[in-house]
């Protein structure tokens, strides 16, 4: 007798995810055949790279059970910093490194305030994000920076292609592969997970929980800068609200992915980001104004968060046991 075929855990959820993707893609393709054109698919992958990078750092923050609402402001500040440096003729890699350092610095401020001083994460990051967003105006009094962009080479990041797809997409896949390895195959990933799962038991197990909470915020600041570099490359200018649109898709990616695949993880975020980007792109392709499509996607995000929330699921569970009283607890022993 051969053993019964056993599927890896989460396989069912993965299949459900693929079916959902197929349904959404099919629906868009029916309404607008151009949805499946290579031009559009290329655009989807490019936008996915942007959203996915922003969502990656956020994933770590959510894994340590915190929230970061500052990274959009951080991204705006970094965008203007990079734009300012480009306009002043610095090498592109210098500009990007300084931008990353700025993102890391704001993340470090968040991390120290929250993990060392114990300030509430949401309030702290709203404040630092607003400050960073305000500082973005200092370089040019709020005017768009475009000087020297053509010559700097940043546009090439957007235009370069491998096998017909943007380089940024392959960069996204590479960085997610590294992140997956880090989270699931190294002691550092185990420490992140232990910190988020139960900070007290992690602390008692010798995990430096404050350090890992701090690191999550630093990484979140840096990945949001990587995301905004791609936005700069696409638009060819630096604007003070360049990173403002990163917040919603990133949160939607993290939480929708967690709801679909049964927990917050690097791969879940990648899946969630894929779906969200496809939805946003599809809506814009069929001519739905952004204020409607944002609304629809935010509603989907809300649904995802509700389904992911333990208490809400318990509520449904309690409700179902209440409605189906036939399932008796446990039989008493004789």
């Amino acid at each position: 007798m051969p053993d019964r075929l056993t599927l890896p855990a989460g396989f069912g959820r993965f299949v459900a995810f693929l079916i959902l993707v197929a349904v959404v893609a099919g629906a868009f393709a029916l309404i607008e055949p151009r949805f499946l054109s290579s031009q559009n698919l290329s655009a989807v992958t490019r936008h996915m790279a942007t959203n996915g990078l922003a969502a990656l750092g956020l994933t770590l923050v959510v894994i340590v059970r915190k929230f970061d609402l500052s990274f959009a402001g951080t991204a705006c500040f970094a965008a203007m910093t990079i734009g300012f440096l480009i306009a002043n003729g610095y090498d592109l890699w210098v500009c990007i490194l300084v931008g990353l350092a700025a993102g890391a610095a704001i993340g470090a401020i968040n991390g120290i305030a929250i993990s060392v001083f114990g300030l509430p994460d949401i309030v702290t990051t709203i404040a630092t994000g607003s400050i960073a967003g305000g500082l973005a105006f200092l370089y040019s009094k709020g005017r768009t920076i475009f000087q020297n962009f053509m010559q700097s080479g940043i546009i090439d990041l957007n235009d370069a292609r491998i096998l017909g797809y943007s380089v940024s997409f392959f960069f996204l896949i590479a960085i997610y592969a590294v992140a997956w390895f880090l989270m699931h195959r190294t002691r550092y990933g185990a420490s992140f997970q232990a910190t988020g799962e139960n900070p007290v038991s992690a602390y008692f197990s010798g995990v430096p929980t404050k350090l890992y909470t701090f690191l999550a915020f630093v990484i979140c600041g840096m990945t949001s800068v990587l995301a905004v570099v791609l936005i700069l490359a696409e638009s060819g200018t630096a604007d003070t609200n360049e990173g403002a649109n990163l917040l919603m898709p990133a949160y939607a990616g993290v939480f929708l992915g967690a709801a679909l695949l049964g927990g917050t993880s690097v791969l879940a975020t990648l899946a969630g980001t894929f779906l969200i980007t496809m939805l946003l792109d599809g809506f814009s392709l069929i001519g739905v104004p952004y204020y409607y499509s944002d609304g629809v996607v935010s509603a989907i995000l809300l649904a995802g968060v509700v389904l992911f929330d333990q208490r809400v699921r318990m509520l449904f569970h309690d409700l179902s046991t209440f409605l189906l009283p036939a399932s008796e607890p446990r039989e008493k022993r004789p």
Binding site: R185, R187, A190, S191, A194, A202, S205, G206, V207
Partner: peptide
């Protein structure tokens, strides 16, 4: 989790 030094080797790989 209580002894990650023992549980991992080069570059912290488990």
């Amino acid at each position: 989790i209580g002894n990650l030094g023992r549980a991992s080797g080069f570059a912290g790989i488990l």
